[in-house]
Amino acid sequence: MDNFLSRVRTLTHSSIEKHRLAFNRFEWPEKIQDDMWWHSPDALSIATSAIENDWSEEQKMALAKWECINIFSLNYTGELELMQEVSRIMHEVKLGEAKEYLHHLIDEENQHMWYFNKFCQTYAGKVYPSKKIQLEKQKLEKPMDHFLVFARVLIFEEIGHYFNVVNARDKRVEPFIREINEAHYHDEARHIAFGRQVLEQLAEDAIVDDNAADFVENQLDKSIAINIGSIYNPQAYRDAGFPQGVLLREKLLNDPSRMFIHEKKMLSGVKRLLGKCGLNVMEETAA
């Protein structure tokens, strides 16, 4: 616990020192031109897939706009859910004085939500609504509930981080959009470091036996599938001019090269961390 607390203390300092208030941070351009890359071509959902070469440069650029809006919408709706879930448990979760960091987490996510929503509304006139819902509701023991909340947060944040990194690095991406990705990247790097620490801390009380481990693995595999699936938004494909969005989505979700990116580029950190907690996720696809 001591080691854990001192690491979180460092993150808390870092949040106080380094986080810049988002509300007056950016110069918001009036418009973002359609002939710019709104999203790195390398971050497109068709990138490296078998069908990538069927797409012209113009088609890719159109898709980049709507996938930027999709990823920013997912950030917005996912951060809203994160704030609701973390707020729900923050009073009870057994993290000692490390709970203090949760205030910074919520504070920063609130600001991210503000800019992602503003961006989507200002430059595209809409936010893509969330499709996530929990159909099977169970009453869980608190340690299990708390572990699952932070594990889902980590899955969401590590996938989002992949897009921040690729877009912030790529000089082809429109400068304002790069700046947003970069700002988000810096805050998220701290959140992910915190999330990894927290999960190791909470694992012991939550994963009490093999049954508990099976249950968590099953729940998290579903969360992974839903989060990965949300990158492939049929409405974004239709907005970019491809009417059969659902079909395209299914093709890409089953494309070996895309599956490789999900596992090795987006979720390798999650898999490693959960492994440390004695959990095996993404088993069937990992071969």
Binding site: P129, K131, G229, Q235, Q244, V246, R249
Partner: peptide, 25 residues
């Protein structure tokens, strides 16, 4: 007949076929 994962796909299919956008709640 649908779990959370198939439900998402089902709603996406419904959106495409009915030409609408849905918020899931």
């Amino acid at each position: 007949l649908v779990d959370s994962i198939v439900f998402v796909e089902f709603m996406m299919m419904l959106e495409e076929l009915a030409g609408i956008q849905l918020e899931v709640n």
